[in-house]
Design a protein around this nucleic acid. Sequence first.
DNA 1: GTCTATAAAGGGATAGAC
DNA 2: GTCTATCCCTTTATAGAC
Lengths: 202, 202
Amino acid sequence: MTGRDGDTEAKILDAAHVVFMRSGTAGARMQEIADEAGVNKALLHYYFRSKEKLAEAVFRRTAGEFFPRVFGVLASGLPLEEKVRAVVAGDMDFLSRHPYLPAYIISEVHHQPERIVGLMTEFRRVSLDVLQAQLDDGAREGRYRPIRAEQAVLNLVAMIVFPFLAGPLVGAVLNLDAADHQALMAERRALIPEFFLNALRP
Amino acid sequence: MTGRDGDTEAKILDAAHVVFMRSGTAGARMQEIADEAGVNKALLHYYFRSKEKLAEAVFRRTAGEFFPRVFGVLASGLPLEEKVRAVVAGDMDFLSRHPYLPAYIISEVHHQPERIVGLMTEFRRVSLDVLQAQLDDGAREGRYRPIRAEQAVLNLVAMIVFPFLAGPLVGAVLNLDAADHQALMAERRALIPEFFLNALRP
DNA sequence: GTCTATAAAGGGATAGAC
DNA sequence: GTCTATCCCTTTATAGAC
């Protein structure tokens, strides 16, 4: 897929990524992955030993390219308003290119909760200290209403990620065609930061 | 589970609900469901013909007890502020009793998008007209800033549902133990309506 | 490293007795 | 209606040639 034709192992990993995201880990078939990679089924076992191990490898890579980016911005020294705009822009950009990623992560985490716990101990743990200080400063100066950083992050990430999770549901429930849906998502890029920052005002 | 011991069909449906929510539809085994129901595997086929049909039945029942309730409140004539509080209280109450339900629905919708489209044509479609009128009135009177009803609903539902979807992830990422997590969720009941309504202010 | 062929187990579905 | 026994296709995994 991403075209690293020289390296068979990477080619298989890319193919597995596509298939696991499409069919879910339990629903995916090793044959399907082999076809997607353009190699024989036996090669998957040669490189990754078992389906379980292959799924683990895909999950680790996928989670690793998603979480650290967000964490980095949140813990950065940017002023809060810029930080919010940066997270929204960065995430929606990334998720537009990988719309099925959140549903995949959620599904994996529900069925294999140990995996994420293990991974999170490897990543540097998210520090909300900087963010909390910014919120507290703002509250003291009367610019923001008091709120815990955990709640703020949860609200912001929810508004960004949920529409991708709900994807097909949103279209069906609100009765939107593909064009309406795309317009809705585009509008959110500007809307979410304003909505969120306005909610923080006293 | 819910204890309708007389009716075998209902007993199987309840068991299937539990197992499908736990393992996902693709990951669930008919034997697992039979064990959970305390009956033989053959009986599942006697009542529901196939795994596919059983999954469909569970999905319809589950979706049917979730969506109409929310839709009803949203389309009701309640004043907007009460409406928001009612949705948050009602949903968080319901979801606290069925924390795995959102992840199950999301997973199903991703792998069988036709199902939800079919179901939504059966439910009376959500009317956002009443809500949009309330938002427009408020904007004209200077009480709210202008916003499309679709975006408002998406933001509200996102803040309510996302933490249940992310469930184990939130705990791992924010490094919370079970008690912290429960406290966080409890705090959200009061926080979400205030946060949301404040975001609407000019 | 990559393939073909095949073993071994899993799991949905049915037949038939009770 | 409910059970036991069994069929048979699917799917993971390995053996062994090239």
